[in-house]
Design a protein around this nucleic acid. Structure first.
Length: 560
RNA sequence: UGGCCUAUGGUGUAACGGUAGCACAUCAGAUUUUGGUUCUGCCUGUCGAGGUUCGAAUCCUUGUAGGCCAACCA
């Protein structure tokens, strides 16, 4: 083997799930078939955590030539809604994955019911009349075994009859449950006669009022996996204790043996994903909605301008393991920049305008400056920008009394106007408070971009917009929503940790005219400022841009 | 204080009993008509204690730390 191949093998090392899958394939398990599933409950919007799970499940299927289903785990009608079904499907597709099939656990209700009957017939399940409190009291503790319910030894016939009547709606909510006959002495609390079915007179978003009994997670999930012949059912670590019951049900039912594997949840620094907390942020107007670009939801990341490719790459780089981790936001931002750098159209926008008058450039003269749309992509073409004697530059690009390492414009210094001429600052005009309001500069006619014979070497190139032809735009600058790395594990209330500067609106930025028709979904790099995308609020004549992420900025770092 | 899971640089992740590698972050430098990109380099790590072994991040014992489990949630 060549060293090159060895290197490649090293860099493409597998994670522990890929190891398992490859062993299974090698052993000919399931005929070498790989079938995963992403099983969201349609009771909220998908967030970054779901995104990594989606990438994992669909990614594994892709890597091993298998399939991945999207299955809505809709067994609790009280919390679920079709509104979420639609957004979840849209988010999965936006991330770039097409489910092999879209299924609903609720579609399996009839079969699940038959499974339950089968369990009863085999003596593995019974109807319990105990209340929730009684059940909890008899369950014991991790150190003491549970005690049997007084109804545990009902006959198969009685259980069958009772369960059928539960289904017919003869008993009030909470009065009866179906329980597995597990092991009351098990050190695994989940195995102490877990609930399989409960009575709920609730309207289901898909089955309507057909059912008044609904299966619990443990009765529905593994069996749904089995029905779909899922080979690798991947979930998070908190389900480890459920695996014993997962296998128990499949064994007792004697159905297709799907297998459950667990990986650790991956948390993102400076964000929270708790449904309750996110809901509070929305309801109390700390953000503008579920897709506010500061939110960790997939819809928010999309609106902010993150690309699906960047999120997929991020998930890949983070990898998976069995301990819960906090991933630095900087890695996600790196992936976003990496992708956007390749595809974003460059343009010039001035956030905080400072007027520059070029005194030796004829007031009635206009030139069209041609510049590349993307230095990283020769096929991106060029665009033209009008140049005149009056332009806007960024206030930050001028300092009257610059510190030693500042090499932008200051009195007497030179700067290249991107794609145009080199100018020299001759005079600063200030208001009553001493703030610069206008710069008077001279330009060097022989320094025109592309045909520069001036021999001048300015230390910097700055962006600009022609004063007469720039167009107004609102620009929304986003920063992290929280001030601490791990807001979920902070002793203070999470609302106290909200970053007051997470959104700064620049109402009067000036954009180059080429941006007049910019549409949501398009990706731009505003030169030297960052990556931006038009917000859905944006329309021709009233442009609104979201800052997706800043450019890496050595200068702001240097000055502190 | 019953059971289960986990522990590798600042953050993630590899190394499958045989030279602890990669990425991000940080710092320094080169290049640059974006203080971007690109390139180069530096710094930093096997939780502790025992044991097995010629050899341990890896196996065993034990300690420590973190996480999970006693919902008619998933």
């Amino acid at each position: 083997m060549t060293t090159e191949l060895i290197e490649k093998e090293k860099t493409e090392s597998n994670n522990f799930l890929e190891e398992i899958i490859e062993q299974d394939i090698a052993a000919g398990k399931n005929g070498g078939r790989v079938h995963t599933r992403f099983p969201p409950e349609p009771n909220g919007y998908l967030h970054v955590g779901h995104a990594t799970s989606i990438c994992l499940n669909f990614g594994l299927a892709l890597k091993y030539g298998g399939k991945c289903n999207l299955r809505f785990d809709d067994t609790n009608p009280v919390t679920e809604d079709t509104e979420y079904v639609d957004s979840i499907l849209a988010d999965v597709r936006w991330l770039g994955f097409e489910p092999a099939g879209v299924y609903y656990a609720s579609d399996y209700f009839p079969r699940l019911y038959e499974f339950a009957v089968d369990l009863i017939k085999k003596g593995f399940a019974y109807v319990d009349d105990s209340t929730a409190e009684q059940i909890a009291a008899l369950k014991g503790t991790p150190t003491e075994p549970g005690k049997p319910s007084p109804y545990r030894d009902r006959s198969v016939e009685e259980n069958l009859d009772l369960f059928e009547r539960m289904r017919k709606g003869e008993f009030p909510e909470g009065s009866k449950t179906l329980r597995a006959k597990g092991d009351l002495a098990s050190s695994n609390m989940i195995m102490r006669d877990p609930l399989l079915y409960r009575i709920k007179f609730a309207h289901h978003h898909r089955t309507g009022d057909d059912w008044c009994i609904y299966p619990m997670y443990d009765m529905a999930h593994g069996q749904s996996d089995s029905i779909e012949h899922i080979t690798h059912s991947i979930c998070t670590m908190e389900f480890i204790p459920h695996r014993e019951l997962y296998d128990w049900c499949i064994e007792k039912l004697d159905i297709f043996p799907s297998k459950q594997y667990e990986f650790a949840r991956r948390n993102l620094s400076y964000t929270i994903v708790s449904k309750r907390k996110l809901l509070k942020l929305v309801n109390e107007n700390h953000v503008r909605g579920w897709d506010d670009p500061r939110m960790p939801t997939i819809s928010a990341m999309r609106r902010r301008g993150y690309t699906a490719a960047a999120i997929r790459e991020w998930a890949r780089r983070v990898g998976i393991a069995k301990r819960e981790i906090l991933v630095e936001l900087s890695l996600l931002e790196f992936c976003v920049r990496e992708d956007l750098n390749k595809i974003a159209t460059r343009s010039m926008v001035v956030l905080n305008p400072l007027k520059v008058v070029i005194t030796n450039y004829p007031a009635d003269k206009r030139e069209l400056m041609e510049m590349g749309n993307n230095p990283e992509d020769p096929n991106a073409g060029t665009r033209k920008l009008p140049f005149s004697n009056e332009i806007w530059i960024e206030q930050d690009d001028f300092m009257e009394n610059p510190p030693p390492k500042f090499f932008r414009l200051s009195p007497g210094s030179l700067a290249r106007l991107k794609g145009a001429y080199i100018i020299q600052c001759d005079e600063v005009i200030k208001d009553a408070d001493g703030n610069p309001t206008e710069l008077r500069c001279t330009y060097f006619p022989e320094s025109r971009s592309g045909s520069d014979i001036s021999g001048l070497k300015p230390k910097t190139t700055i962006h600009w917009v022609c004063a007469n032809c720039g167009i107004p735009a609102e620009v929304r600058l986003y920063d992290r929503l929280f001030t601490v790395e791990d807001p979920a594990n902070d002793e203070r209330d999470f609302l106290e940790l909200i970053n007051p500067d997470s959104l700064k609106v620049v109402p009067n930025a000036i954009a180059e005219a080429n941006l007049a028709e910019a549409m949501p979904g398009e990706k731009y790099q505003f030169l030297r400022l960052g990556y931006f995308t038009p917000d859905p609020d944006s329309k021709p004549g009233k442009l609104v841009f979201n800052r997706t992420v800043t450019l890496k900025d050595a200068w702001s770092k240097a000055k502190g």
